[in-house]
Design a protein around this nucleic acid. Sequence first.
DNA 1: GATCCTTGCAAATTATTTTCGTGATAAGTT
DNA 2: AACTTATCACGAAAATAATTTGCAAGGATC
Lengths: 286, 286
Amino acid sequence: MDIFSKLQEEKARLSPSETRIADILLNDFEFAVNASIIELADKADVSPPTVTRFCRRVGCDSFSDFKVQLARTAYVGMRYLRPEPKSRDPADVAQDIITKAQNALFLLHRSLDMAAIEQAADKLSKAEMIYAFGSGGNSSMIASELQNRLFRFGLHVTASSDHGMQLMMAAAAKPTHVIIGSSFSGRNAELVRAFSLARETGVTTIALTQADSPVAQAADIVVQIDLAEGNNIFRPTSTRIAYLAAVDILASLVAYNIPQAAVTLRRIKQQLVAHRDGDDRQLLGD
Amino acid sequence: MDIFSKLQEEKARLSPSETRIADILLNDFEFAVNASIIELADKADVSPPTVTRFCRRVGCDSFSDFKVQLARTAYVGMRYLRPEPKSRDPADVAQDIITKAQNALFLLHRSLDMAAIEQAADKLSKAEMIYAFGSGGNSSMIASELQNRLFRFGLHVTASSDHGMQLMMAAAAKPTHVIIGSSFSGRNAELVRAFSLARETGVTTIALTQADSPVAQAADIVVQIDLAEGNNIFRPTSTRIAYLAAVDILASLVAYNIPQAAVTLRRIKQQLVAHRDGDDRQLLGD
DNA sequence: GATCCTTGCAAATTATTTTCGTGATAAGTT
DNA sequence: AACTTATCACGAAAATAATTTGCAAGGATC
């Protein structure tokens, strides 16, 4: 368990002196990781022993262990404690965006249900036909990314971001087919309808979405992507990055399931090396 | 600058004792961040002073500073020193992909030229018309992402992934217009032609690409995105994630330059909060 | 008024850094 | 080739700094 969650948990039980220490951690983190116990104690107007006791309280062995843990979780844990540092200084903006993106990946990794992903990869690699659904700028990008990745392995796949089309495809799909749909919010009602329709005829449905959302409940297999609220709503880029990484993982696992894919990919790679001087289109390869 | 790049840089000049210390860092990192200077010295078969000297050598003020820096960059920096774990075990595959994506963000952040980005943001926010160019699956996605982000701020922007169209637009552009083009490889010859054409008539050109590449040389302003080779060629997803983050940064800076944008964005946010139950399309907002 | 908790002081302990000297290697000199 | 001389890496020990522990005083609570 990381320091920051421990801190939030203990917050109420902290003594006045300890609260002052905690405040410094949250407000002037840079100072805190670089300070010695004496400097930190001075700044918090407490004695060094109090700082030591504080460290023990939040689950560390010693002050130096505390500093290491602090520095370690800082990278990921820091920003989602305080809402928005949001200075307009370009360096801060860049730092903030990069950190949020890394956090999103971190959270994705932590919440990934590997069993579900493996199951999804398994179904996809055996599917006679795959429909990738997603609407809105974000999810439709994910749908075309799925198409982009999967067709390379020799799979039959088509992507659609059109609700009407999705419904028709879902109605026409056979039990040997697979529908994979993405919804960041989990509340895409049309996708839910498409899933329900497909399941009536025994088509396998896979959702890339938030756990326990309507879309998740409508699907057979749920690759859940649960990010903290803050990341989610107002900063779509970091959420999208997490989805892209999830698709990357899924596609890689599918590739391992398909012997032919390895051969194809190797050929693409060789071609890439041979023609390094071409333009971007070649980078499509993987 | 982080410890691990410093380490690689200094590697050749390291003495035998120092090399032993470096080895421990790389092989038993967990031990290294938790050890005291004495424990670390013992394990490396050197004396504590040698460890202190080693710390100074890699750019730290003291041993404790060293430990903090270590713990701090560990999360992202670790893996790109060792080549490939690459087992087929799903958990490893996932870990590998996530780490590579995080590294790409880390490297992006390190190599970002903030002055160039600010300059680019400045030009974009003042442009009468913006053309976003990019071809191939990756760069065309970046182009449409640019359109997607910039039109929200009230800017006039169009994206194109069609070479012929790009040339015509470049020929028709006026000095008050801006062309922004993306090329992962930096070798998109058509984009170079479009840039050259545009510059003849004094149109500002901005490139999102590798430094010192043909595309970079053809542009007025270069937002350089330099990732290590390994990431680049065979794993397009992580490169793309870096580009997406770069666009995110650029767009955020543009937003700060445009007073009107803040108002628009606030309205979008309020609407999002009010209609939380809608579908994905609303997440397009930022 | 007894008890418990918080806190700081001072001493003890431990960790880290500095200083200094040795030995090894390389470069220059006779 | 042999002999300085310079340079450097390295560790021992001393000096310094940081951290922890034991203990007692001051408050709050019951």
